[in-house]
């Protein structure tokens, strides 16, 4: 059972990464692309790490894999804010439904 979940989770994770890239390609402005990359890719990474942690035989190896997740989250949340703020200061207007 755990083996099956451990094998399946990285595949699910890959789908989230793909969704993040899809959002990057399809969303209309930098702000919404930011949401897609930050949230979907981080969930993808979380699934991959959890899957591999379940596959690992050693508890310390599992925990080390899981330690990567908060670091990656800290990185992307800090970078996300930096990008959004930069974009606002550059005068990038958020895309709106009614505007062309």
């Amino acid at each position: 059972m755990i083996d099956a979940i451990g094998t399946l989770l990285p595949i699910v994770g890959a789908l989230f990464y793909a969704a993040g890239t899809l959002g990057l390609l399809r969303f209309p402005d930098v702000y919404s692309r930011l949401h897609a990359l930050a949230k979907a890719d981080n969930l993808g990474l979380g699934c991959v790490l959890l899957g591999l942690a379940l596959q690992a035989e050693d508890l310390a190896v599992s925990l080390k894999l899981l330690l990567i997740w908060p670091l990656a989250l800290a990185a992307s949340s800090a970078v996300s804010y930096a990008i959004a703020r930069r974009a606002a200061h550059l005068g990038v207007k958020p895309w709106r439904r009614d505007s062309p």
Binding site: P28, K39, A40, P94
Partner: peptide, 19 residues
């Protein structure tokens, strides 16, 4: 958050009402 944005990415920009 990840699930929601993934679903929105599949639907494209018509899923968005940003502001």
């Amino acid at each position: 958050g990840g699930l929601q944005v993934a679903a929105m990415a599949l639907r494209g920009r018509r899923a968005l009402t940003p502001g």
